[in-house]
Design a protein around this nucleic acid. Structure first.
Length: 460
DNA sequence: TTTTGAGTTGTTCGA
DNA sequence: GTCGAACAACTCAAA
């Protein structure tokens, strides 16, 4: 009787899971385990609650066999492998900076006792380092990457094994036996787990895909896929999505093409981070190394107003409040709120990226931090330095009836239609406690452009 | 090696 | 109100 260990990390599903297939093939029985890593628990409390819900679902899907332990994965995995007599530990390949370092250490310790860490698959349709430019190096511009990414292609979804002999370990309590998690599922989101992910995907395909291309930028309408959190935890794999799209009647349409492009962005940023691990928290390019940013006691209250959704700019505040309440924000609003911190408050992007990562239930270091770098002009596809989002114009354009801002800002409920975007233009605009604007946007825009000039010219 | 074309997501100003 | 130009120059990718 051979036993293999299946270590779940962010691939919490049984369908389309190559690591599971490899584990089943390697052993007569499979011990499934998830490890709470204190290093990852330290921040992102909202994701802990979400993960608990997802683990409860996975535990049920494994018939209660899932083992959940807490500690440094290096020690926990080594000990557990010994305990159950597993020669192979199966995982999905991790390509983030921390994940890679951790897995190298786990691999070394396992090899020291004659065991093996076996990687099968990754969280991406095309895993990092596979798509290469003509020169053999990685792409640093999205459009050519996405063309090569499509040309490269991806495998069909992997089947869910017909039969899995899960083995449990005595002495471990499955999560379902510990009572329901403190927060079953963050508000505004469907239940966690593989079945919920599939259901969300089916609903999106049936109800929202047709209008996705046209309406995906509208935070007032619920027209995005809302799959980011499911993808974050691997409750569904992008291969599954891509294959289903091919079979869908609208699969060749503009909306489907747009959606596929979003999956390409996810893979692109993972690829960029893989090749430049340092870019997680440092400028990818040093072209703005001399950029003067503000920090300290003068700007701290402004940053706090930004975090709390009290900047006096309704579109920004609605987004920031949605973030604190739901742990989620529409992509359009993520760009506008990020631009506000970087270009209106002149704060270095990692400050905002960290806040987002702490609050987003779909918080992913590659997509989040490189999205921030795109806004800040330090990342791939450095946006023209003069491109500064106007928070009011963006609101009027993408929330034309003001419904999104009223949904998140009760102080503006008395303003109808688009008037909610400019309360300062109405005598009663601030009657219900909505704050005045903390900065003059036109002025700060000019200031941002001036600083860019300095950074470009001086270089230090 | 050199050259050429292109690059997610915008705003403002003036005609 | 609408429309086009200006904003400035740089890096990347491929021929």
């Amino acid at each position: 009787m051979t036993t293999s260990l299946l270590w779940f990390r962010r691939d919490l599903r049984l369908a389309d899971n190559p690591a599971l297939l490899a584990a089943v093939e390697a052993g007569d029985e499979v011990v499934p385990v998830f490890i709470w890593d204190p290093r990852l628990l330290a921040r992102g409390g909202v994701r802990v609650a979400r993960l608990e819900a997802s683990l409860a679902a996975l535990s049920a899907d494994t018939g209660g066999a899932l083992i959940v332990r807490t500690g440094d994965p290096v020690g926990v995995i080594a000990q557990l492998a010994e305990e159950v007599g597993a020669r192979e530990v199966h995982v999905s390949r991790e390509t983030t900076p921390y994940g890679r370092r951790r897995d190298e250490r786990v691999r070394a310790v396992l090899e020291g006792s004659g065991r093996e860490l076996v990687e099968s698959g990754s969280p991406y349709a095309v895993e990092p380092d596979r798509v290469k430019a003509g020169s053999g190096g990685p792409y640093r511009v999205f459009t050519p990457f996405s063309r090569a990414w499509r040309d490269h292609g991806w495998p069909a979804p992997f089947a869910r094994p017909d039969h899995i002999s899960w083995a449990s370990v005595s002495g471990d309590e499955p999560p379902s036996a510990q009572g329901p998690p403190a927060t079953a599922a963050p508000p505004g989101h469907e239940a966690a787990g593989e079945a919920a992910a599939l259901e969300r995907w089916r609903t999106f395909l049936d109800d929202d895909l047709a209008d996705y291309g046209e309406q995906r930028d509208r935070p007032d309408l619920d027209t995005t896929s809302r799959l980011s959190v499911h993808l974050k935890y691997g409750e569904i794999h992008p291969r599954t999505l891509l294959a289903d799209l091919e079979d869908h009647p609208s699969g060749a349409g503009e909306s489907a093409r747009r959606f596929v492009t979003e999956l390409a962005w996810r893979d692109f940023y993972a690829d960029v981070l893989f090749h430049s691990p340092r870019s997680a928290w440092h400028d990818l390019r040093d072209t703005l190394a001399g950029m003067p940013y503000d920090d300290g006691p003068e700007v701290d209250p402004l940053v706090e107003a930004w975090r709390q959704g009290r900047t006096g700019f309704p579109f920004v505040d609605a987004g920031m409040r949605q973030l604190l309440t739901e742990g989620w924000m529409h992509n359009r609003v993520r760009m506008v709120t990020a631009s506000f911190l970087v270009k209106d408050l002149h704060v270095w992007w990692p400050v905002g990226a960290r806040h987002f990562l702490e609050q987003l239930i779909d918080g992913d270091i590659a997509s989040n931090n490189h999205g921030w770098q795109w806004v800040a002009g330090t990342g791939t596809d450095a946006s023209p330095w003069f491109r500064v989002f106007n928070p009011v114009t963006q609101g009027l354009k993408f929330d034309p009836d003001g419904e999104y801002v009223r949904r998140w800002i009760p102080e503006l409920e008395h303003l109808s239609g688009a008037a909610a975007h400019e309360p300062w233009r109405r005598p009663d605009g601030h009657d219900h406690g909505y704050p005045e604007r903390i900065v003059d946007h036109a002025e700060e825009r000019r200031e941002a452009l001036r600083r860019y000039e300095v950074a470009k010219g001086g270089g230090g």
